[in-house]
Design a binder for these strands. Structure first.
Lengths: 221, 221
DNA sequence: GTCTATAGCCCGATAGAC
DNA sequence: GTCTATCGGGCTATAGAC
């Protein structure tokens, strides 16, 4: 009688080089140490095995607590997922809207798009374990929480679309199909959560620069 | 006590326009009608709710059978997933290697790459529900079955890499980083399983042509 | 705030009649 | 090959001691 089997246990995950990232620095400042530890454990479990294959025991074991201790810090497993997904979406949106990030490469539509793509891509690489959960585990959310996340995603998408539409309007870019190009550029950054690892050949910044270069080729006149 | 809740039931899924695709024409000819019906029901459930959130009751209800009937046709839920994932990977590999598909656009490295990208992309769009399961539900497989699928994926990746490396070697393309460009092109096609729907603005063939165009811009001299 | 113990439910899979 | 009924067991979440 085959039961829900997580392919990897919390113990194995803690030492897996594929799951090394900077997610533990992501959580909200208001949270306590134990809460942040539980989120870091949960994000690894969810990323490796999926939300529904992860048990509350897995999450708690990852920080050396009993299963019941989780419920002192979070009211349910779904709210652990929601905290992870909401934090990730808020952080990446804030990051790409950061004026110092946006103006780093200089003025003009091309520099602006380059900066946005590089920032969005390198963020996903740097936090690829949490980003994987944000991108691929949305089906574990309740309908209400899912709607909240969709609203944040629409803001992010609009930000990309505007950066591309601006360059197309001022003649910096070719007359591209903005909707289709926007989706293609988002796909490049989002899909890296399936394969990226920090100990691979590209640093987050290198990959961000490479994808920014590809993006500019997509819209070149 | 919140239980494993699938956000959508099999009944809702059958009429959901987002889940319309051509997966029912995908299954192996040796299989019987009931088996193929179960696979079509399962692929919708897995795509919408995930493998672990789907129960054998959900799958069976989708074809009007009792939960026990599933086990006459498949030995376990995991083998239903494996049949779907293996069939999808074999079909898409055969499709991009089809000589009539490859030579459709004419000779030369650029036409070859264009044909491969267009075929791979349009296949994922046409079968986006099954393709979503193939790309995003691999964690539900046993370790042994996962290894079998990885082998098929390596063959597909090698086929892309060769098409790009050939154009870089014969001067048709710029001296690109073949490994990184291969991943980027695969990402474009794979990530569409998250958002594509057949009743959207692009047909599978239109999207295939568009992404083939983007791919050629990525390697343009 | 942590633990042990367990309630209460649901799930994958099986037994056995038809 | 389909059904009804159910087993065995794991799951989320809670109760209550410390």
């Amino acid at each position: 009688m085959a039961k829900r089997q997580a392919r990897f246990t919390a113990q194995e995950l803690a030492d897996d080089p594929r799951l090394r990232d900077h997610s533990s620095a992501l959580w909200r400042e208001e949270l306590g140490d134990v809460q942040r530890g539980l989120l870091t454990s949960a994000v690894r479990c969810f990323a490796a095995n999926g939300f529904h294959a992860t048990t509350t025991r897995d999450i708690a074991e990852g920080v050396g607590l009993s299963p019941a201790a989780l419920y002192v810090h979070f009211p349910s497993k779904e709210l652990v997922l929601f905290e992870i997904v909401r934090t990730g979406h808020e952080r990446v949106l804030t990051h790409i809207q950061d004026p110092s990030v946006l103006s780093a490469g200089g003025d003009g539509s091309a520099n602006r798009l380059r900066a946005v793509i590089a920032a969005y891509t390198s963020w996903h690489a740097r936090h690829h374990v949490a980003a994987r959960v944000c991108q691929l585990e949305l089906a574990g959310l309740t309908a209400g929480h899912y709607e909240e996340i969709l609203e944040l995603r629409h803001q992010t998408n609009a930000f990309f679309r505007d950066a591309i539409a601006r360059g197309a309007a001022d003649g910096s870019f070719a007359q591209v199909d903005v909707k289709r190009v926007t989706r293609a550029m988002l796909s490049l950054s989002i899909d890296l959560v399936r394969w990226y690892r920090l100990d691979g050949s590209d640093s987050p910044e290198e990959l961000g620069e490479f994808y920014a270069g590809l993006a500019l080729k997509m819209v070149a006149r």
